[in-house]
Design a protein around this nucleic acid. Sequence first.
DNA 1: AATTAATGTGTCATCAGTACATATTTATTA
DNA 2: TAATAAATATGTACTGATGACACATTAATT
Lengths: 244, 244
Amino acid sequence: MTEKELRLKTAEIEKISHLDYFNIAISVDCVIFGYEDKELKVLLIKSDLEEFADLYSLLGDLIRPDEDLETASYRILKERTGLDDVYLEQVQAFGSIERHPSGRVITIAYYSLIDIKHHKLKLSHNELNWHPVNEIRGMAFDHKLILDTCLARLQQQVMEHPVIFNLLPEKFSLRELQELYEAILGVELDRRNFRKKISIKDWLEDIDEMENDVPHRPGKLYKLKPEFKKKAIRKKGTPALQSS
Amino acid sequence: MTEKELRLKTAEIEKISHLDYFNIAISVDCVIFGYEDKELKVLLIKSDLEEFADLYSLLGDLIRPDEDLETASYRILKERTGLDDVYLEQVQAFGSIERHPSGRVITIAYYSLIDIKHHKLKLSHNELNWHPVNEIRGMAFDHKLILDTCLARLQQQVMEHPVIFNLLPEKFSLRELQELYEAILGVELDRRNFRKKISIKDWLEDIDEMENDVPHRPGKLYKLKPEFKKKAIRKKGTPALQSS
DNA sequence: AATTAATGTGTCATCAGTACATATTTATTA
DNA sequence: TAATAAATATGTACTGATGACACATTAATT
């Protein structure tokens, strides 16, 4: 091969390597929600990009060619939290041109629900921490937008499906459950109406135990009926405008 | 530069050009819904891949590095239908490893709503046609899955937001509207209850005109109130579990 | 003028959503 | 040990949405 031929080949490969359609990277970003101290929290890490010094970012990574989207999400969760049996749901893709300072990266956002107390993370370094959702201001990239979008989706989901229990321990009191709904929805609920509504759903099983670590009258403990325990909830059928 | 150096560079570039993370292509696929002859239809094209000879596929294309996701979707719509002022909404990404026979392609699905009658397409060739949603059997790639997912999303949306009107002409009768709901939801609705429910929503304006092309007693015509006419509907706020 | 086929409307029963108050139980304190 | 404080547990009445259901009216057709 002559030098000229090599130079041509070089140019050609460079052209291919920058070929438009393969010049976009794809990542997955996980919004990992947890619940602690009566607050909805999200797991964030200090951004490693100079542009975003001192800002926090979601946990994410580029997708590998040999893994599908969910596999990539589970990998990130496993790497960062040590957990692999968690609730996970895709929300949507974010792809504005300018969202990543280092190049074109389209990201697909997932949200995940974790019981903080019973799955102590290996928080390897203090750059990775739980942050109360309500106190988060600036974030790296467009991650604040992604977080807000995922929170909105979570709010929608907890109204329709029994997914909220992924944030709670196996056994919980109705007060804890109500406080969690309040934290997610950002509203105060009336106790009597809340209990009526929950009992209508028929999701819970009375396990005939009481709280024992509270400094007041203990409440009954419940758990989610097994038939509703699914890590990945599939959408239900279409609600009918009216059945005739 | 010596030949050896060039050879090294060549190898390096080849490595980069096949670098895992840039070896995934990204496309957009549009599920374009229309309504005609009391049927919900979708715009499909004959697949150009040998593997999928005689199967239909959605309209899609690879995303260009200089366009964001919505731009790519609008481009596809414009190219294929000639329209650019249409309702469009992202549904979700599909990324299984085996979904595309020619390589790894992750696709982001959008659905779009079009008034067939008043936007005559340039159906350039007879490979591109409207197909009744209920009669579609096999499709190329995972496009049947994408179609079903988008239909489910549409069904969800029409229950909550005034998006259905993007499928109808400016003026329509309540019968036409009801038939469209029935076609989308796949149910029969009671006329009296349907009208009650629609009137409560307060979406419609009585324009004091009557149908004139029907072989029976003509019904009143309505149009969507201008404040609800948005091509891209943004999600409403979270429904409260209960306001206290 | 009679017939046909659609439009247009109201009532009643049921159920979900919401506002609201009192008795009971346990831990704590005096 | 008794009194107090703070939480649990529960029911009723009002309002509005949902869903089943029947009859009079209008226009085109015969």
